[in-house]
Simulated assay, not measured.
Amino acid sequence: MKILLPIDGTELALHEVRFALRLATEGLKASFLLANVQEPASFYEIVTAHDAAVLETISHSAGQHALQPALDLLHQAGMEAETVVVTGDAAHAVVDLIEEHGCDLVIIGTRAMGLLRKALSGSVAQDLVNASPVPVLLVKPPAEPEPTLDDAE
């Protein structure tokens, strides 16, 4: 089974990688595709850079940097992974990657957002659930640890 893991460089994305690793260590035969989606260059960036190749290089480097901690986690667990950095709308780019790389499953996290923020901004996870041709496994963020007496001091 080929699992696509969208990685945005956050600690929450690493939580999703750990969840995928747990599935693999419990017997799921899986290979992994780590993907980072960079936003397209803004008008300001295009005007000031004067060179599309420079913007592309910077964007690709930022994406590779965001993928590295997830790749390190997989390697530490003895797993290999492919990596890819693309530019565009996150949900649409992930759907394209599913088809291009023959992925069987996407594991993505949900972000804890209030109802108003969710209604105004939408959700990449929700868009992906609606558009994906393969199952999408949503991983809740880890529960916040309870404050201890030591934390209060």
Rank of each mutant, 00 (worst) to 15 (best):
P142K: 04
R111A: 11
V95P: 08
S31K: 13
E26Y: 12
F32I: 03
L115V: 14
L5V: 04
D127E: 15
L105K: 06
V95E: 13
V124M: 10
G88P: 10
I108H: 02
L5G: 04
V95F: 04
I46N: 06
F19K: 05
V124Q: 09
V17Q: 05
H15S: 11
D96Y: 07
P135I: 02
E100L: 13
S123H: 11
L73D: 01
N36S: 11
H101S: 07
A70I: 04
E153P: 07
I107R: 04
T25Y: 02
A49H: 08
A70N: 05
V106Q: 05
H15N: 15
D96P: 01
A52Q: 11
D96N: 15
H50P: 00
H75P: 00
Q126W: 04
L5A: 06
F19A: 12
C103V: 13
H50A: 12
A91G: 03
V85S: 05
V129Q: 07
A30E: 08
T148V: 06
E11Y: 00
T48F: 10
Q68N: 11
L115H: 12
R117W: 10
A52F: 08
V134M: 00
I107E: 01
T10N: 09
A41K: 07
V129Y: 02
L73V: 00
S121H: 13
L67G: 03
R117T: 15
D72N: 14
A41H: 06
F19D: 03
L34D: 06
S59D: 03
P141T: 05
G109N: 01
H15T: 11
M1S: 08
V86K: 12
A53C: 02
V37K: 09
A62M: 14
S121W: 11
T10K: 07
L67E: 05
I98H: 07
A35W: 09
